[in-house]
């Protein structure tokens, strides 16, 4: 059988992520896509642990661990140094949703506005997992976390980080899912050849925080796309293209019911989520049509 993704492995086996961790998988694909000439910058997140404690590293490329709010700007610094020294390589910031949507958004916005030549990947598991499942602004509407108890689940929708990044008018913004590795890898490879700030947002299910079964990780990552909860699209120089268009979107319930973090949802809630999802999907279709 011919593989549809690069064969080379740049991540070691035996990392300490939980069984079925989407984030672990995402990195494996990312390094396959970008190859050996890649510098990785990781702020505080689950990946600071997955990358291994002293004296180990689970990556076969240079890796810099940095403070939680600084992934984009430390990457900018590294890129500047490489440029001045005439070293041609990719710098990839690899941050969680907390490090991207919340505490890191200031330095991310700064880097994007300056159009720093970096790839910024946000692996999104929709909460602060490394500290034990607290809500982030990427946590979906009505989800349970330890700081949004079932009685008062998250009251606001997920922040639309992709549109925020599009608004910075950077050359490339894309979403991806670990259930569609070819798409994710193609996007990274495309990003590698674009100059300026590239932002890739990959949905990475987390069995521990989503209260789901490890063996459901890929299924959930796929269902998120097939229910249009997490659309897969890219925006290149302002031009929208939806890469995966489910012909008959599945009901959101199929996605929600596999996750303990949504266990408390009422029929009303599910209806509300379905409607919001439809609305957003329609809006995206229009954007593709007009831009």
């Amino acid at each position: 059988m011919k593989l549809t993704i690069p064969e080379e492995e740049l991540m070691y086996e035996g990392t300490v992520d939980c069984q079925g961790c989407g984030a672990g998988l995402a990195m494996r694909y990312a390094l396959k896509a970008l190859g050996k000439r890649t510098f990785v910058v990781i702020p505080a997140c689950c990946w600071s642990i997955i990358a291994g404690p002293f004296p180990y590293s689970s990556l076969q490329v240079p890796l810099y661990h940095t403070a939680f709010e600084t992934a984009a700007v430390v990457s900018s610094g590294i890129k500047a140094a490489l440029e001045i020294k005439g070293i041609d390589a990719t710098v990839m910031a690899w941050a969680g949703d907390g490090g991207t949507f919340d505490i890191g958004i200031q330095s991310l916005s700064g880097a994007a506005e300056r159009n720093e030549d970096i790839i910024y990947v946000c692996y999104d598991n929709e909460a602060y997992m490394n500290t034990g499942i607290q809500r982030s602004s990427a946590t979906p509407y009505k989800a349970w976390t330890t700081t949004t108890p079932r009685k008062y689940p998250k009251a606001r929708p997920k922040k639309n980080i992709d549109e925020i990044m599009v608004a910075h008018e950077i050359p490339y913004v894309a979403t991806a899912s670990v259930a569609y590795p070819e798409d994710f890898i193609r996007k990274l490879q495309k990003a590698k050849n674009i100059k300026g700030t590239k932002f890739i947002h990959v949905l990475a299910p987390c069995p521990t925080g989503w209260r789901s079964l490890p063996e459901h990780t890929i299924k959930l990552a796929r269902l998120a796309v097939q229910t249009c909860i997490f659309p897969i699209y890219e925006v290149e120089d302002g031009k929208y293209k939806i890469n995966i268009k489910p012909k008959n979107p599945k009901p959101v319930e199929e996605y929600l019911k596999l996750q303990g973090r949504f266990r408390h949802l009422t029929e009303e809630d599910i209806k509300e989520i379905q409607e919001a999802t439809n609305r957003k999907w329609k809006k995206l279709l229009k954007k593709e049509e007009f831009f």
Binding site: V16, D17, C18, Q19, I49, T208
Partner: peptide, 14 residues
């Protein structure tokens, strides 16, 4: 009394 965990990073299954 005192009760405490091993002072470390806990991962499911480890």
């Amino acid at each position: 009394v005192q009760a405490f965990p091993m002072f470390g990073v806990e991962r499911r299954g480890a």
